[in-house]
């Protein structure tokens, strides 16, 4: 029988103890040291003291007292210190990023009225802003919106097969060799690094204006993204299921088709739908460089200062994006 006591330590006490420890070690009991500590401790509060701690004191008899050691090991302390530096580093980065970006609240408040005029027109020139929109060419816009969705469908579909192939090479657990893995990953980075409208320009030169170069641009860019997402899915599969196929005498290809693929199928379908949503939005931007669809019309309206028409187009785009996102997320919910 060993009676024991638990001291429940509040956060304030923990902080107190911690400050005392740090203070004695590094700063001594100076005013400046304590002020610096207060700042550091404040930063550390969320990470370091999330859990309530207990101090348990065992009593072997009335005269001797045993305690469990609750002081964090050196490794944990090092990690805490590192995480403090990390947060300080992030804060410093944000400060650095502030300069040169001309962030100014005053400027925003001064100029916000001008934006209002652009959106709603002025009293001397009514119906010259985006709102109220002008829907007189509605059937034409609807046709172009549908064309944009068609572009997104084919731009996504054409990416699936190459993306699956590349994802096998670019997943750590299925890649035939680390060198292949590395090269594949860099190729995927490259595919994603080139902006879609630049790709579209390249294909416009090859096949002329219209939706087709837009589809090609989407397909290339989407291949890069989907392959990366798929390979991340492949890296999380249960290795035991693959081993079971191998142990039954399956070859490497069968290990993929019967061991890996059934496991990643929901992920693949979900990511493909998600990219389709994004591609509907991307396809609209592509119109700006002459690659067909509603974006082409939007660009035309903006250039001709026909803001009410642009307002109509934008409101239709918003509705179509709502619709596609809603539909696709409903389907994704059902994938298991």
């Amino acid at each position: 029988m060993k009676p024991f006591e638990i001291h429940r330590i509040t956060r304030a006490q923990q902080l107190d103890a911690y400050c005392e420890l740090l203070g004695q070690k590094f700063f001594g009991h100076t005013v400046l040291g304590n002020a610096a500590l207060l700042g550091v401790s404040g930063l550390m509060l969320p990470g370091a003291f999330q859990k309530e701690k207990f101090r348990i004191i065992f009593k072997e008899s009335m005269t001797s007292i045993q305690t469990v050691n609750i002081e964090a090991p050196a490794k944990v302390k090092r990690q805490r210190l590192l995480s403090t530096f990390m947060w300080l580093g992030i804060a410093a980065l944000m400060v650095w990023a502030f300069f040169g970006t001309e962030i100014s609240l005053a400027k925003l408040l001064q100029g916000v009225g001008e934006s209002w005029k652009l959106l709603f027109g002025t009293s001397d020139k009514p119906n010259s802003g985006f709102i109220p929109p002008n829907f007189s060419r509605f059937p034409e816009y609807l046709e172009q919106i549908l064309l944009t969705v068609k572009m997104a469908m084919w731009g996504t579909a054409l990416a699936i097969v190459p993306a699956i192939g590349l994802s096998i090479l670019g997943a750590k657990n299925t890649s035939p060799h680390p060198v292949v893995y590395f090269i594949t990953r860099r190729v995927l980075d490259l595919l994603r690094a080139v902006p879609e409208f630049v790709l579209a320009l390249v294909f416009v030169v090859a096949v002329g204006l219209g939706p087709f170069p837009g589809i090609l641009a989407l397909a290339v860019y989407t291949t890069g993204i989907l392959a990366k997402l798929f390979s991340e899915g492949i890296e999380t599969v249960d290795a035991g299921q693959i081993e079971a196929v191998r142990a039954a005498g399956g070859n490497a290809f069968q290990a993929f088709t019967h061991g890996v693929f059934p496991q990643v199928l929901p992920h693949v379908a979900s990511m493909t739908l998600y990219r389709f949503e994004s591609n509907v939005r991307a396809a609209q931007v592509l119109g700006l460089v002459g690659a067909g669809g509603i974006g082409f019309f939007l660009n035309e309206a903006l250039r001709g200062f026909d803001f009410p028409a642009a307002g109509a187009i934008i409101s239709l785009i918003i509705v179509s994006v709502f619709f596609v996102d809603f539909l696709s997320s409903k389907i994704r919910e059902r994938l298991t």
């Binding site: 060993k2 009676p3 638990i6 429940r8 330590i9 006490q13 107190d16």
Partner: peptide, 20 residues
Amino acid sequence: PVVSMPISVPGSSAVITNQF
């Protein structure tokens, strides 16, 4: 249990006792 000396914590007066 690792045996060690208790660390003094200022102001820790709350003590819960239990049987162990």
